[in-house]
Design a binder for these strands. Structure first.
Lengths: 124, 124
DNA sequence: CTCATCTACAACCATTTGGTTGTACGTTAA
DNA sequence: TTAACGTACAACCAAATGGTTGTAGATGAG
């Protein structure tokens, strides 16, 4: 049950998880080091249970994973997660993005020959 | 009033706006064509007022703009919006990717050849 | 063993969200 | 002018969110 990375509900969970400053901060912290939920909770002005819930949201979104180590639960940001978010954004506006990228490049490098309609270009 | 593109609340609004399939679809549709709110509403199994609210959420997040044309209100996806979302993601995991560090070093040591767009480079 | 620590989870609460309907107002067409 | 259309907005509602406290189960230290 791989759940298809680009299904609506998957993308919903992904962006929803990112739509909170505390959760983004957790992701940031756990990129560099594995931290127990208790350690994380010390960093925020809220209860342990609240942080636990935030971690659960991130986990369901696939942004972090938990690994048991003794009595602690170590949280780690999934290295692929940000890439997945990027791909979701690209899928969102890929047609437009191809056009704008090309326009930007043309304007920057070689102004004067923009006559190819790129409305349906790069799928990267 | 520029509101600082990377403030917590700005990013909150951005990702929250993207965390709904209907809203993502509106963004997708209005990338290619300006559509009135009524036209948009026809596409979804919900009331006009509901679509109106979705558009309002997208507008507060800076993802779309509305422009009056007669009695219609035309909705258009902001060309910069997806770029802003990309940048927010990059800022989130820059430490892990080492991207910002590398960019900083390049800019410091060898200013003038930053022409390899790093927003679209390494994927793992 | 005993105690402190870390986690899990339930119950509860206030606020927000996503939807509805209804009303009012400006604009275009007949 | 009148009727139809497109929009704005308020009031309302159910469900989800984000927080709390409290209780209970594992695990490690002394």
């Amino acid at each position: 049950m791989v759940v298809d990375e680009s299904s609506d509900e998957t993308v919903d969970r992904l962006f929803h998880a990112l739509a909170d400053a505390t959760r983004r901060d957790i992701v940031r912290r756990c990129v560099r080091a594995e931290l127990s939920v208790s350690r994380l909770a010390e960093a925020y002005p809220m209860s342990f249970a609240a942080v636990q819930k935030h971690v659960a949201v991130l986990e369901r979104a696939g942004l972090v994973t938990k690994q048991r180590s003794g009595r602690e639960q170590l949280v780690r940001t999934d290295p692929d997660a940000v890439g997945r978010a990027h791909r979701a954004l690209d899928a969102l506006a890929s047609a437009w993005r191809g056009r704008v990228d090309r326009m930007a490049r043309l304007l920057a490098e070689d102004p004067g020959r923009e006559e190819n309609d790129p409305t349906e270009g790069s799928e990267r």
